[in-house]
C-alpha cells in the first residue's frame, strides 16, 4: 500500500471494493435484526420490528392469499390461481397499470418539447405556460383533481402527468435547443424537410438523453403515484401500505417497501439496457 489507506490515490483491490460496497447493507440488516431481537425479548408480541420469520410469513400471506376485501381463494386452488388472486399480485397490477399509463402519457410530452424547441411559433405558444405550470406544486392540486375528475383512476394518472410532464417537456425542449444548429442546417442542405429534421435528425439525437431524463424522473412518477394511492384508492401498493399502517402490519409493510424498490430498480435497469441497445453510439449512458 504505497498510497495510504483512504487517500485519493488509493487503489482498493477487487475484494476490498466488493466488501466495502456491501458493508452498509450488512450493517443495516444486522442492526435491524439486533433491535428486533432485543425488542422481542422484551415483548414477544412486538409488532414494530417483526422478525425475519414473521416477515416471511406475512409476505407468504400476501403472495398466496387474496386481500381482505376480496373473496378468499379456495384452499385447494392451484399455485397459479392463488398467485394471480393474491393481494400482492392485485396491488402490483393496479399500481403498475397506473405507472405505465403515466409513462405512456410522457410520450406526447416529449413530442411537444421537441416541437417547442424546433418550431419558434410552437415554442412561443407553449413555453411561458409550461414554465408557469412547472412551478405549480402538483400535490397542492390533488383536492382539485379529486373534485374535477372524481377519485377513480383518471385523477391519479392526471396527478402523475401534471407532476412530471412539465419537467419532461422542459427537459426535452432544452435538449432540443442543445442540438448544434449546424446539424439542422446541414440536414436541410441534404434535402430534408422540417419534419425529417425533427424526427430523423433531432429526435434521434436527443432520444438517449430523453430516456435518461425519464429514468431520473421515475422517482417523481412513483412519488405522485403513491401520494394519489395513499389518499384515495381501493387498491395498489401504496394503498396497501397505508392500510396496513392502521393495523401496525409491519411484517407486510417492510417487504412491500423492498418490493417497490426492487420493481423500480428493475424498470430503471430495463430502460438502461434499452438505451444501450437502441443507441450504441451514445457513450455516456
Amino acid at each position: 500500500m504505497s498510497a495510504g489507506f483512504l487517500l485519493i490515490h488509493a487503489r482498493p483491490g477487487r475484494v476490498w471494493s466488493f466488501a466495502l460496497s456491501w458493508l452498509l447493507f450488512a450493517a443495516g440488516i444486522g442492526a435491524y435484526l439486533w433491535v428486533s431481537h432485543a425488542r422481542h425479548l422484551d415483548n414477544p408480541e412486538d409488532r414494530v420490528t417483526p422478525t425475519l420469520t414473521q416477515m416471511a410469513k406475512g409476505m407468504y400471506g400476501a403472495v398466496m392469499r387474496s386481500a381482505e376485501e376480496d373473496e378468499p381463494t379456495a384452499d385447494d386452488a392451484g399455485f397459479r390461481t392463488r398467485l394471480t388472486h393474491s393481494m400482492l399480485w392485485k396491488d402490483t397490477c393496479a399500481s403498475g397499470r397506473r405507472f405505465f399509463y403515466a409513462l405512456a402519457l410522457l410520450i406526447p410530452a416529449v413530442i411537444l418539447g421537441l416541437h417547442m424547441g424546433l418550431f419558434p411559433y410552437v415554442g412561443q405558444f407553449f413555453l411561458r405556460f409550461v414554465l408557469f405550470f412547472d412551478k405549480i406544486i402538483a400535490l397542492s392540486l390533488l383536492p382539485i383533481l379529486f373534485i374535477a375528475f372524481g377519485i377513480d383512476e383518471l385523477s391519479k394518472v392526471m396527478l402523475i402527468v401534471i407532476g412530471v410532464t412539465p419537467t419532461i417537456i422542459l427537459d426535452t425542449f432544452n435538449l432540443t435547443r442543445g442540438v448544434p444548429g449546424e446539424q439542422v442546417v446541414k440536414a436541410f442542405t441534404l434535402g430534408a424537410g422540417d419534419f425529417d429534421v425533427a424526427y430523423r435528425v433531432v429526435l434521434r439525437q436527443i432520444a438517449p438523453r430523453v430516456l435518461n431524463s425519464i429514468r431520473l424522473n421515475l422517482k417523481a412518477v412513483m412519488l405522485f403515484l403513491f401520494a394519489g394511492e395513499m389518499i384515495a384508492s381501493t387498491d395498489g401498493l401504496a394503498y396497501r401500505i397505508a392500510l396496513l399502517r392502521r393495523h401496525m402490519g409491519m411484517d407486510v409493510i417492510i417487504p412491500y417497501v423492498l418490493w417497490v424498490a426492487l420493481l423500480l430498480f428493475l424498470v430503471d435497469f430495463g430502460m438502461r439496457l434499452l438505451n444501450r441497445t437502441l443507441h450504441p453510439w451514445f457513450e455516456e449512458a
Partner: peptide, 9 residues
C-alpha cells in the same frame, strides 16, 4: 461545417 459535420447517431 467546421464542427458537428456528421450525424453522431
Amino acid at each position: 461545417p467546421q464542427r458537428y459535420a456528421l450525424f453522431p447517431d
